[in-house]
Design a protein around this nucleic acid. Structure first.
Lengths: 243, 243
DNA sequence: CGTCCCCTTGAACTCCATCAAACCTGGTGG
DNA sequence: CCACCAGGTTTGATGGAGTTCAAGGGGACG
């Protein structure tokens, strides 16, 4: 179906040690504080986190592997996805700086994670996280709040996947990205059309047609470096049916 | 679009006091312990929970209302849904005994909740929950675990909505219900075809056609009282593409 | 017994997927 | 430095799964 399918269905499971260059800075906090933890907040996770750098298109973990760690993205962009046996792929979400991955308390990962761009993540071993949750009760509440916002996003995505048209999906997607990026109407789209399609429940072709339609309608403008400028966020929101 | 649309888009917002008959048993624990809290576990929520009974088709809360309480289902079945401005509806989930509702830490509910059958729920005021979270640190971890499993279910649903065919969706749905119901191949389907359609991103007609197809293929059998027997769970799982 | 609502079935249509080909772009090697 | 190549993107033509429109059951309830 997709070009990546054959590969994705039989993922190359290189051991982590090979694919991840471990940065030698266990003592140092990230230069930019992770979102969700304000600069003046203590970040108990930082103390036990190992920094890791991943190249683009590199696997961070794969569905079914033992879930022995959770991750927090420091920089770059990550895709999370699930596969059906025949290779159809659904991208659960795109993660950016500050997002957490792998908090599902199962013993195996229930989805795969891959770097879209070169990315830096903090790796937090599960056992150490458990210990930390015992000693720092406030951490559980913080993680609860992080998880509930993920759940809210997941519910929005269900509405999108189940009930929106192709163009509505695309408009919603661009607006959601824009809201997370904050100020500035230009947003980075480092992921491929195929990634976007697999996130919105569409095909690359339909996504591409959607982009051209939004372009010719003067709602967006494609900038260099895979960046997109939202020319008329109002009209986009109308198109997206507000959600 | 749907028969219910006109009503749902302009929900009748009867004050809770009117629609919910408050049961007079604030001291007594539920006869059946809520799932997720084993019988020998202390249930700190029970102490502050108010029991409420809802008739079928009655609203529990509506999207946009002040989120001043969370709920736990004791008995019955609840639907959670989001609406688009034009009335299209996506059912986020069906809740049964033991499930929690409204844990999103926003000041307004982000979806609506309605009883499908006559239902009993525990109402836990938000402010009291916050206090309880302070005094009982273990509670946050428990809620975190509850929320992460909801998130896992949401991710499965995204895969279903984005990448599965109508028949695959229906098979997955029946299997998921069957797993939750546990032993016995007969499962209760108190919700309407329209509810199922709005949960699976389909129309009533397509759901109905799917049921007839599964019936004539001898994979399911419709029993009285809106119950369904899974005659060949293996074949259903194959149809559902395992997920 | 009639009415209402839900479910089912049929027929036509539509949006998006599929198939196919041209285009662009960045990287590589001659 | 440029030709070539591979991959992603765009555009076009066709087809199909599911929606839409329409009508006929069937059970619950007054």
């Amino acid at each position: 179906m997709h070009a990546h399918t054959a590969i994705a269905a039989q993922p190359t499971r290189v051991p982590h040690g090979h694919q991840a260059a471990v940065m030698a800075m266990p003592r140092v906090a990230p230069s930019r504080p992770a979102a969700g933890f304000a600069a003046n907040d203590a970040d108990p996770l930082a103390a036990i986190a190992q920094f890791r750098v991943f190249d683009r298109e590199q696997s961070i973990f794969a569905e079914g592997e033992a879930a022995d760690a959770v991750f927090r993205v420091v920089d770059g962009m990550i895709r999370l996805y699930k596969l059906l046996p025949d290779g159809r792929r659904q991208i659960i979400g795109f993660l950016q700086a500050g997002d957490m991955v792998g908090l599902a308390f199962a013993d195996r990962y229930l989805y795969s994670a891959e770097a879209i761009t070169a990315s830096t993540v903090q790796r937090i071993p599960r056992c150490q996280l458990d210990a930390l949750l015992d000693s720092q009760p406030a951490l559980a509440r913080r993680l609860l709040s992080v998880t509930t916002s993920e759940l809210v996003a997941a519910q929005d995505q269900m509405l999108l996947l189940g009930r929106k048209s192709a163009l509505e999906k695309l408009a919603s997607f661009l607006l959601a990205l824009s809201r997370r990026a904050g100020a500035g109407r230009a947003i980075a789209l480092p992921m491929s059309r195929c990634d976007i399609a697999d996130h919105l429940g569409l095909t690359t072709e339909t996504v591409s047609r959607g982009f051209t339609k939004l372009k010719t309608s003067r709602l967006i403008r494609i900038l260099d470096g895979g960046r997109v400028e939202l020319l008329d966020a109002e009209a986009l929101a109308e198109l997206a049916e507000c959600a």
